[in-house]
Simulated scan of single mutants.
Amino acid sequence: MSSKSPFTLIILLGLVSLFSDFTYEGARSIIGPYLATLGVSATLVGFVAGLGEFLGYFLRFFSGYLTDRLRKYWAITFAGYFINLFSVPALYFAKTPFQAVSLILLERTGKALRTPARDTILSYATFKIGRGKGFGIHEAMDQIGAFLGPLMVAGILYFTKDYKTAFAGLLFPALLALFFLFLARKLFPSPEKFERTSPLSEGDSFSKGFWLYALAMGIYGAGYADFALISYHFKKIELFIGEEIALLYALAMAIDALSALIFGYLFDKKGILILIGAIGLSSLFAPFVFLGRKELAIWGIILWGIGFGAQESIIRAGVSYFVPPQMRGRGYGIFNALFGLFWFLGSTLLGILYDLSLPILVGTSIFLQLLSILLLIKVSKVSQFP
């Protein structure tokens, strides 16, 4: 394998994501119970989780436009990762709920800044080897970090029982992520050279298929409960203790990594049918995690991880089929902005429903995810989506 091949770039970006996910997913695994120790209510946890995802997605509209306008893919990616990564160990210094929430939102803002530029680079690199395969490999490596981060956090909590110490320990993987990002930039200063044309995306405007796809995935995101709310539920009813919750998140990330590889490979062969199947399967997580006992809750986390693997691999890969290269940054920005808006509204709604009725929360979650499948069927009829 040549050091200048697109596959090498995918691996380097995978290493960046591995250590960055090690950092912020390690923190994310304990955000719910951490906020609970500060006296935050379930409604506010749901709101903060939703607002964080909203910022993390909606601001990508602007960063995506900036990416296409400036075409400074690496500079924008570096700036976003710097904010994204160092907000996590900074939680060590937080003393009030306001300070903690501000850093949580800042971390999501950094992710919003860097993601369209990073995904545009990745879309160029995956052009020749297959979108599903390339994004699937990247997501699998990403989730290795998301698996290891919560494991380390669980270990720190086991020995120290201190959330702040866990946050401080995540500084080291943050530094490693920036190192591999620098190496990728040094070896591949012009990643756009890997792709000159797009076989399914021509012209200078977004197709009807793109907008339907974005709407379908937005509705799917609205019904997908954030782990902050799930972990809050586990903590509140004392179904699992702190380090067990972190281990459950690690389990979900391991399932995410495995499913991303499988889905990515199958997506290049079977297309939208794989995405529909993944959503249908993962839609069953809600009754297991919110209404089940320990054993069922664990199965629910596995299903939740399957859905998350689809979100971060083949759903992202699908965007590149609708958008020409010269509009790729804006395409990812608009898609993620809509996804974030729906995720925010859905997370807020699910947080409110949690305080009102768990069965209604579960029913709403399932309904929204299955509704997205109907829209995906429509997408397959009005576009060349494979």
Rank of each mutant, 00 (worst) to 15 (best):
I352H: 07
Y158F: 14
H138K: 07
Y34M: 06
A42H: 09
F210L: 13
A278Q: 02
G56M: 04
I360G: 04
D119G: 02
G277F: 00
Y220C: 02
R69I: 07
L291V: 09
G145S: 04
V382E: 11
F263G: 04
L229E: 07
A225P: 03
G26D: 01
F206K: 01
L229N: 03
K381W: 12
I219Y: 01
Y57Q: 00
G136D: 00
V323N: 06
L44S: 08
I245R: 08
G331V: 04
Y213H: 10
Y65L: 14
L349M: 10
S29Q: 08
T77Y: 09
Q311Y: 01
F147W: 05
A228F: 11
G351E: 14
F19M: 07
G307W: 02
T348E: 15
E312N: 08
I219E: 01
Y34D: 04
G169P: 07
I104C: 11
A146C: 04
L187S: 11
L368H: 02
A112I: 08
S3C: 13
S231W: 02
I302K: 14
F127M: 12
A257R: 12
E238L: 07
K294I: 12
P386Q: 15
Q99D: 13
L103G: 12
L106K: 10
I377G: 02
M141G: 09
G264L: 01
V289W: 06
S201F: 13
S102W: 10
S372L: 05
H138S: 12
G318L: 05
Y81T: 02
L170Y: 09
F339G: 03
T364E: 04
S283R: 15
S2M: 14
L375D: 00
A225Y: 00
P89Y: 13
L350G: 01
R108H: 04
R69N: 06
Q143R: 09
G223W: 08
D204Q: 12
Y332H: 03
K186H: 12
F339V: 07
I255D: 00
S283K: 15
I276A: 02
L361A: 00
I373E: 06
S207H: 08
A254C: 15
V362S: 07
Y81M: 02
I129Q: 09
E238F: 05
P189C: 14
G39I: 14
I121G: 00
L178R: 14
T8M: 14
L361V: 02
L200N: 12
F22A: 03
I11M: 10
L187C: 12
A257W: 05
V48T: 07
F339Q: 03
E295I: 10
L345N: 03
G155S: 14
L291K: 09
R69G: 08
I104K: 12
T77Q: 05
K128S: 15
R114W: 03
I314D: 05
F240D: 10
L370D: 11
V88G: 07
